[in-house]
Amino acid sequence: MIGWFVRRLLQSVFVIVAMTVIVFVGVNVIGDPVAILIAPDADQAERLQVVQSLGLDRPLWEQYGRFLYGALQGDFGKSFVFGQPALQIILERMPATLELAFCAVFLAVVIGIPLGLYAGLRPRSILAKTVMAGSIFGFSLPSFWVGLLLIMVFGVQLGWLPSSGRGMTREFLGIHWSFLTLDGLTHLILPACNLALFKVSLVMRLVRAGVREVLPQEYVKFARAKGLTERRVIFVHVLKNIMIPVVTVIGLEFGSTIAFSVVTESIFAWPGMGKLIIDSINLLDRPMIVAYLILIVFLFVTINLVVDLLYTVLDPRVQHNGEG
């Protein structure tokens, strides 16, 4: 088990290092940093000076070494636009994104699991069929367009909910949160629903498929033969078996929710790091792009590692005896 964990950890470190190489090469070799930094009418001397000051005349591996050294200390350079350390700006925006992503996953769980259970237990009911048909739309609808519809209906036509920004925030543990104020909460509803739509469909289908698969199993019949109540059969014997894949997927989806918040944040003007990266790409703010990409890779690898661990803890059948 410990051997497995160490191997898994090393693998994660390797992925992060590989991604830093890809990002570094992508930004510095495929893109031309000098062209972005220097005014088009600059002369050769000015050009050379910038190149030297940035160390771009050095061999590539040395540049990478410096980049990695900086990155390890959290130094990705200063944002061209904000003039502040890139990582600092991103970290300031991160709580907003995490709050949104967390709310979306929460919604997906509290809506998706009960609906999936119901659809799995009563597959012939009208509600189950409606919900299943609806989930096709959940998968098919591009999330940005759903966001627009939500704004149009609830923001513009009905005027019930605000559709832009975070609203009032309150400080807790030194960080500003929207969900602690009523105003912030109303601002949270539309973007969270928008981001959750795809996850709800996913969790629901996953739970339904799990129920359909587990219900005919002999151990469910045996549980009934023991005279257990239907509640215990469903919520202990069936659910415990389904929860292993569901928890795994939800864990992994948390990462993709953070990534997809890029879209939702742009639509609802949510001041998170997703909106920031889009702006940075549009403005060619290179340090910001690099810092964001490295940070999100780190986040993803960590999430994957945690989910893997969780899976091991949840499923008694998984045993890692040193081998990968």
């Binding site: 199993q217 002999e218 151990y219 019949k221 045996f222 549980a223 202990v236 014997h237 415990k240 078996n241 292993i244 949840l314 499923d315 008694p316 059948r317």
Partner: peptide, 10 residues
């Protein structure tokens, strides 16, 4: 089938 009658995760 005794391999199938006991719940594998309990």
């Amino acid at each position: 089938d005794p391999m199938m009658t006991l719940n594998p995760v309990l």
